[in-house]
Nucleic acid binder design. Structure first.
Lengths: 193, 193
DNA sequence: AATTTCATGTAACCAGTTACATGATTCA
DNA sequence: TGAATCATGTAACTGGTTACATGAAATT
């Protein structure tokens, strides 16, 4: 078995967007530069070579729309190989390192997951996510304590770490909420009485 | 006037840490790999060349500790030019783009700011940060509304965006709290009665 | 005696940034 | 008529990743 080629956050974004609907390089640029999705800025020098690579790997395929014009618009759609790779990637288990170094990536994977994996797998993903986050918070609090032992006149370092901790706590709350909303309530039991 | 050479998040982290105390490449690697500070992973292939560049720019200067051994430990301290550049960089005004694409960078700047700029400038920075965040939240809510108009069976995209909005709301609360804590309360007025 | 930790670095590769280039079409 | 938008791309540069390499000192 060949090992999976790793999918960077940037490629993930491109693949995910193309999975939602066929798109051109220009479409992607617009999305990256105008919507909250994708704070990966995107210059043509990043997008077009990436699309070229994905096409060469047979993960996407381009179809030229107006063949006669000089610079015809080329729309890419996801090829079976790409769909397989993308699906496998977003469904990967959540690791500790993901939580510490790649939250953005996790959130992006989550954002595309609904259509690709369905409800059950999504809930499972959130469960793993929640467990990892809950395990990490105490570690951060430990660091905070040792930081607090060296007081500074303007302790911005400590405040920054507190911000980090609060962020993870928020993520845990968010995950719990979404799990709840995605779990079948078997038609919300009517109030007794 | 020569334009400032831009300081990447990675260089910022290195400079800020060296500003706190003289450190070797190895020290930095340890910090990046073991503490919550710096989710910029750091391989030697990133750290050592970066230190080399900073030294060539005269922003830091290295002092070799055990000159006789084959691989002597080299400890870097911040040079005046580096301190000036770092101070200028962290004190830069908070822009909209920072809020959207470089929150990590902002938090890092904030974390180092206490020692470099003092209380007043820090509070001002937080004020700008808060204003930008408060201005951005409605924009995100707008996007959320338009997303909500295309319902999906498992709307993970919508949930991801909600996560983003909640994060910014948290940041606003955090900023308000820290501003409060850093503002001189003129000795907390004793309760009347 | 073997493993881990301290400590620094290089080389090949890959990918992203910036700036440049082209030219049609639509709008003011 | 001039500006903005649509639309795609290349070239030079820079910097980060991975993997490799070296070897002393401390620990087990």
């Amino acid at each position: 078995m060949r090992r999976d080629e790793p999918i960077s956050t940037f490629l993930l974004a491109i693949l995910g967007l193309i999975a939602q609907a066929p798109r051109s390089g220009y479409d992607l640029r617009k999305i990256f530069s105008t919507t909250p999705m994708g704070h990966f800025s995107s210059s043509p020098g990043a997008i077009y070579p990436a699309l070229g690579r994905l096409e060469k790997m047979k993960w996407i395929e381009g179809r030229i729309e107006n063949p006669k014009t000089l610079r015809p618009r080329q729309v890419f759609r996801l090829a079976p190989k790409g769909k397989e790779a993308l699906t496998r990637h977003v469904g990967q288990p959540v690791t500790h390192d993901d939580i510490v170094w790649k939250v953005d990536d996790l959130l992006l994977r989550f954002g595309f997951m609904g259509d690709l994996l369905g409800r059950e797998a999504t809930v499972q993903f959130l469960g793993e996510f929640l467990a990892r986050v809950e395990a990490y918070i105490p570690v951060l609090k430990q660091h905070l304590e040792s930081l607090a032992r060296h007081p500074a006149p303007v302790p911005t370092g400590r405040f920054a770490l507190e911000h980090g901790i609060e962020s993870y706590e928020l993520q845990a709350r968010w995950a719990r909420r979404v799990i709840r909303e995605l779990s079948p309530v078997s038609k919300r039991r009517p109030r007794a009485g």
